[in-house]
């Protein structure tokens, strides 16, 4: 059901982004990239938040469930952070005239991506399930302080990046009408996509653990059979 909603939502988003909405007066056609860029970064941050909460919950409850939720969300966050970076670079090339600018928000997003890559590398390197869960829960819990500290430096460095347009505390949105609707709609579709991916990644992780247990059980049975024969 969620998959169908995502497919339909993506189709509507594509239509809104490319057909229904006009080109921007300043940014021209490049504005259409922001309908991918902003939802991607929102999904990436929400997924990081899920990893943070799940890591904290694992440290409290120590269940496989929380380990799988945290690691699945971190994987999804890596993908969406990469999409954010790539779409931002293409947008930057079109608007600023350069694909990479040492803008702090851009740089801190790259660091978020590297932190997430480190998380995946640690999981891949950990030999057994309990050690993997324990180590990755600590790294997952530290994701948020790391992101906050890196983002604080954004406030201190002079920034080329335009100010936040959508998430303003005074609710004085600076885009209007159909463009704003497309943005909000694309973000909503992104969040449903996150839920759908999370569900399936969790299921694959759960099944992989069952396969691992079964292989271990089979190997033990085979050894016992060898010993008694």
């Amino acid at each position: 059901m969620l998959g169908v909603i995502v497919l339909a939502g993506t189709a509507v988003t594509l239509w809104l982004s490319f057909v229904a909405t006009p080109a921007d007066a300043v940014q021209g056609e490049a504005v259409r990239l922001l309908y991918v860029h902003v939802p991607s970064v929102t999904v990436a941050y929400v997924a990081c938040g899920i990893t943070f909460v799940a890591s904290g919950m694992w440290l409290w409850k120590r269940t496989e469930w929380w380990d799988l939720v945290g690691s699945s969300a971190a994987e999804i966050a890596s993908v969406f952070t990469a999409v954010t970076l790539l779409s931002g670079m293409v947008w930057g090339q079109a608007t600023w005239g350069t694909a990479w600018e040492w803008d702090p928000r851009l740089t801190s997003t790259l660091f978020l991506f590297l932190l997430l890559v480190g998380y995946q590398a640690l999981r891949a390197a950990s030999p057994d399930r309990s050690s993997r869960a324990r180590r990755s829960a600590v790294v997952g819990l530290l994701l948020v302080p790391n992101i906050v500290i890196v983002n604080r430096s954004v406030q201190w460095w002079r920034s080329l990046h335009q100010d936040a347009t959508l998430f303003r505390t005074d609710l004085d949105f600076r885009i209007e009408g159909l463009m704003l609707f497309t943005w909000v709609f694309a973000t909503a579709v992104g969040l449903v996509l996150l839920a759908w991916l999370l569900m399936h990644r969790f299921r694959i992780g759960w099944l992989a653990n069952r396969v691992e247990e079964r292989r271990l059980g089979d190997a033990l049975t085979a050894r016992r059979a060898e010993a008694t024969s």
């Binding site: 660091f111 480190g118 590398a121 640690l122 390197a125 530290l142 790391n146 500290i149 890196v150 604080r152």
Partner: peptide, 13 residues
């Protein structure tokens, strides 16, 4: 190889 990958992004600030 893992320690630099985990540590250096954290120490960037």
């Amino acid at each position: 190889t893992l320690v630099p990958l985990l540590l250096l992004p954290v120490l960037a600030p």
